[in-house]
Design a binder for these strands. Structure first.
Lengths: 333, 333
DNA sequence: TTGTACGCGTTATCAA
DNA sequence: TTGATAACGCGTACAA
């Protein structure tokens, strides 16, 4: 249905290559024919076919981005950074979400290959080893976010992030600090757990596995975790949640039971969501440089596309933000 | 770099068309050659080129989705519905965000054309008239979300949504009900404003333009709006915010000034964000059928792609949800 | 300055 | 059952 370069050529009584040259501002063409053809293209409603162009050019000026969860602001804000850098390079982004399903993730990577993306970024992968195994042949560079063992990756330091949180709570006098995880398979899960443990060890606080419970990164998960924590013979005085949504669930569940934060329990989240400073109480949390990690990932990818394989894994530092959901253990009665 | 059908043909000593048939499970091919070629393709790491296939097939099995804001959960949840329907049809989605910039929106539509998407969905467009004007030639069907004047569109009824909110507040005894809008250009802005006015008129409450203020859909916008509202000689007793984020800003600003919601002011939001029931206080709001609207939009688009032009604009109804941020005006002292 | 010829990777048609 | 040929829309070498 769309009009092609040939249609214009026929209409203008020139050859298709002349039309091509006119449309691409090729130097060797007379100004008159160029103007005439451009006019004709306009009136005929010509729209160049990227698919034909990509076939012959062997490049698509497009990168594929696979994201763990389109609804999670943590991942979405990374996209913002990617978009800005990609736009500066005149590249487009093809975005797909695999919803934390490794099978879907691999299907997306396959699709990116078929579409001949020039590079791939995957954020939130739970199967990073796959991209190291040589049994798959990937003919385009792949950059992972938060898979620090992968050679081409950009990550945020979950170890120091978690450590700072726990140190802050210890400084406030807390000794029984619960930790709500997000299952073992979360890309950043192990790092943060190690940070949590390191802080305790450095302050000679024995690790108590009963106050490490598993959540799912959701508000509901935080609510459930509180039930388990408060049923303990010796409940914690502070709760470190895997993310802000979990923390919100925690605070709500505590309020339902008549407790107040931070008077009765200190609670810390992670991510610094847009509404974290506007929650009640404003959340003490860890701000992750999401926009920046997106930028860095695309920059690294372009280096790889250019053939510069000297890139090394990058690790960005998160920022600890104290607000009002944490307080000294002493204010408890 | 990637291996092509020709490479396999050479390796197997057959013609390219035989390889094509083997790979596509064509009926007229011997089982042995088929098996041999499939093996070869596997070991050689063959990945079919979607771009070459699309060129000859004149179809991409892909629809383009342009979205007003990737960070706004309201839009993102629509994508979820689209993805599910598209997947059922074996279609992929190419997603781009224009961040409420009409120029970028049109550039995305142009890009979709060049990539030969089979159809386009635009949600949150502020320039819907463009798609009616015949000066542009669009050679693929376009479905708009929340542009009810466009013939191929799916919308949520903002009129009844807003009306229900105001009726609820009136029932609680409120007479001075402020409304925080999101600028005139918001796709649903006028509909909701009309609903707001209709409810007031039906209850013989005079419209007071001084308590209709402009926000920007953000928490910060809600905070600013409160300043203007409380500086009025006769402040409102209830505030209807354009969305939940604005409502959160409102509630926070009120709390900062020592007021409590709903004791001193009733506040209503819009959207029913994931955390709306878990905010403090839990938000009275309007739940929009976002997932469903995404589904309907894709279904409509497929009808158009099939050539069925008998589609008519669809309007879905929102659902009013009462929680704890609203109360009778009588409980004020 | 313009036209001719060819190739990109794939599928479909026709002939063998 | 398989092979040769053409075509999709575009860009580019080479020839005119």
């Amino acid at each position: 249905m769309p009009v092609s370069i040939k249609d214009i050529a026929k209409e203008a009584n020139v050859s298709p290559s002349t039309v091509s040259r006119a449309l691409n501002d090729h130097p060797r063409i007379s100004p008159e024919t160029k103007a005439q053809i451009k006019n004709l293209a306009e009136t005929m409603g010509y729209v160049p076919s990227a698919v034909a162009r990509n076939l012959v050019a062997k490049r698509s000026a497009t990168i594929g981005v696979a994201i763990a969860d389109l609804v999670d602001p943590y991942y979405v804000r990374q996209i913002l950074g990617m978009e800005d850098v990609a736009a500066a390079y005149n590249y487009q982004i093809f975005l797909s979400s695999f919803y934390r399903n490794s099978k879907r993730e691999l299907a997306i990577v396959q699709d990116f290959h078929e579409r001949r993306m020039e590079g791939i970024i995957i954020t939130g992968s739970e199967t990073a080893e796959t991209y190291l195994a040589s049994k798959h042949k990937f003919f385009m560079p792949i950059v992972l976010i938060n898979s620090p063992t992968y050679p081409f990756s950009v990550s945020i330091n979950g170890f120091t992030g978690a450590k700072k949180v726990v140190e802050h709570l210890i400084e406030l006098g807390h000794r029984r600090i619960a930790y709500i995880t997000w299952g073992a398979e979360h890309p950043d899960g192990l790092n943060r757990l190690n940070g949590y443990q390191a802080a305790l060890t450095e302050h000679n606080i024995a690790l108590d596995e009963t106050i490490i419970v598993t959540g799912d990164g959701s508000i509901a998960g935080g609510i459930k975790a509180v039930s388990r924590l408060l049923d303990l013979p010796q409940p914690p005085t502070a709760i470190f949640a895997f993310n802000d949504l979990t923390a919100i669930g925690v605070i709500n569940a505590l309020r339902q039971r008549g407790y107040e934060v931070p008077r009765d329990f200190s609670v810390v989240g992670y991510d610094d969501l847009e509404m974290a400073p506007h929650y009640y109480p404003p959340l003490t949390t860890v701000r992750q440089p999401t926009y920046n990690i997106g930028k860095r990932a695309v920059n690294m990818l372009f280096n790889l596309i250019r053939g510069d394989n000297s890139v090394t894994p990058e690790i960005l530092e998160p920022e600890f933000v104290v607000r009002e959901s944490t307080a000294s253990v002493l204010i408890r009665q």
